[in-house]
Design a protein around this nucleic acid. Structure first.
Length: 424
RNA sequence: GGAGAGGUGGCCGAGUGGUCGAAGGCGCACGCCUGGAAAGUGUGUAUACCGCGUGAACCGGUAUCGAGGGUUCGAAUCCCUCUCUCUCCGCCA
């Protein structure tokens, strides 16, 4: 969430910049500004009443000590109306604060100045691309048919055990999953990311911390008995490591990587693009999370993009990197790059990673701060994250792009992880 | 799941109704001392909001001793609820 300070001090800028996200904040901002004023007035009133009360209480204590019972009792009588007033003011203040907060969380993060204006994915800006999109002709099989042909992924079996969107990987298919996970983790570690293996189930506070709650409640699997949520991405448990934390300057950069399965209900997304591995309820992903000093976060974002790009190059997959336009960006992001790989049989670009700088938007919710060396002030840190990478669509692209008459060729870098060079 | 003990600042730890955001110690920062260091010594060392206005410093106010509520003129301290941790028992990978 944006800080009230930002909204208060730069209200016009907030409105202008949110237009890039096709968000008209005019009315919200003015309501927030008014409520903020009211809130502060209430707090001042309450504080001065409390001050009066505290002063009075102290004097009563002194009077008793000095044995001036009569004066003490007289003073004591004066407190009751004051007490009522404090109670009333504090109640009003709490209501006001809550109301204000409910409005503030409706404001999306401000897009970075470089974000292109646009309505949908069609307006995204291609940054660069790499690899070769081969034309495999009309007899090229989509990955779900290849998966069946080589008996490496069983979608039907998953339906029996759980339901649609929970595939069973087997044989070389299972091995390929494990190879990719290890490959990604190893590469991330070489790039300086500390590996963590977090819980796959989180509590409510964590859900709020990274912003899944309350908005996307319906997208997560909920364990009602214990009020836990299955994680939709490793971002949730990993970023929440740093909830309520005050870092020192020298702690930067914080770099974590984690492999986790991810669980998403994907409510309402049934339809066209859910075939095969394109959209699942459970999938594997390796995530990178970074926390940075605000001065360096954009530099860091570029480094993360370069890192993810190298992974795709090593996997010899045709890819492109696009900068999302305002209309296609998430609520919480300030700048997002999407990575897409070309899936040669589906003839589609599949999103395999999304690398974003959230600036202080998440940090504000998380109360993730750092102590500035020079000013000694505690300031909000910047958070960034990205997938490196999401497995299912990588697998889909690998299967489709690398199909040959002899079988599916495994990229060279993966062979030491898989232990085989071809799936046949 | 049953029984008991406990949760105080970055850490340890004192504090059972009054001037306590909280003794003392450790750690940390800065200074003095030293040729340099150690030791010693002095000072400082939580967070948030508000006053506050263009920002910062200072200053002042309020809140916070696991969380929420209550008693009281006044709560770290008394009462209630919740929560978490530890120990023992049970169950178990």
């Amino acid at each position: 969430m944006l800080t009230i300070h930002t909204i208060r001090e730069n209200s016009q800028e907030v409105i202008d910049r949110l237009k890039v996200k096709n968000f008209d904040a005019t009315e919200l901002v003015s309501r927030i500004t008014i409520m903020d004023r009211e809130r502060r007035d209430l707090q001042n009133e309450a504080n001065s009443a409390e001050n009066e009360m505290n002063t009075l209480s102290k004097s009563i204590g002194l009077l008793f000590k000095e044995g001036k019972q009569d004066e003490a009792n007289a003073a004591r009588e004066r407190t009751s109306s004051l007490k009522e007033r404090i109670k009333e003011l504090n109640a009003q203040l709490a209501t006001k604060e809550q109301g204000l907060n409910e409005l503030i969380v409706l404001l999306p993060n401000l897009p970075h100045a470089s974000v292109p204006v646009g309505k949908s994915a069609a307006d995204n800006k291609e940054i660069r691309s790499g690899g070769v999109c081969r034309d495999l002709g009309s007899e090229a099989l989509p990955h779900w048919e290849l998966a069946d042909k080589y008996k490496i992924i069983d979608f039907e079996l998953g339906v029996k055990i759980t339901g649609a969107g929970f595939p069973v990987y087997r044989g070389k298919g299972a091995r390929l999953q494990r190879a990719l996970i290890n490959f990604f983790l190893d590469e991330n570690q070489k790039a300086g990311y500390e590996e963590v293996l977090p819980p796959l189930v989180v509590n409510q506070d964590s859900g709020y911390g990274t912003g899944q709650l309350p908005d996307k409640e319906g997208q997560m699997y909920h364990v009602t008995e214990d009020n836990f949520y299955l994680i939709p991405t490793a971002e949730v448990p990993v970023t929440n490591i740093y909830r309520d934390v005050i870092l020192q300057d020298e702690d930067f950069p914080v770099k974590n990587t984690a492999y986790t399965p991810c669980f998403r209900r994907e409510a309402g997304s049934y339809g066209k693009d859910v075939r095969g591995l394109n959209r699942l309820h459970q999938f594997d992903k390796v995530e990178i999370v970074q926390i940075e000093h605000p001065n360096r976060s954009y530099q860091t974002l570029e480094q993360m993009v370069d890192h993810v790009e190298k992974l795709l190059i090593k996997l010899e997959l045709p890819y492109r990197i696009v900068q999302l336009c305002g209309g296609d960006m998430s609520f919480t992001s300030a700048l997002t790059y999407d990575f897409e790989v070309y899936s040669a049989a589906q003839k589609r670009w599949l999103e395999v990673s999304s690398v974003s700088n959230f600036e202080s938007f998440q940090a504000n919710r998380l109360k993730l701060r750092y102590r500035d060396k020079e000013t000694k002030k505690t300031l909000l840190a910047h958070t960034l994250n990205g997938s490196s990478l999401a497995l299912p669509r990588i697998v889909a692209a690998l299967l489709e792009n690398n199909q040959t008459g002899a079988g599916i060729a495994i990229p060279k870098v993966l062979q030491e992880y898989t232990g085989f060079a071809i799936i046949d």
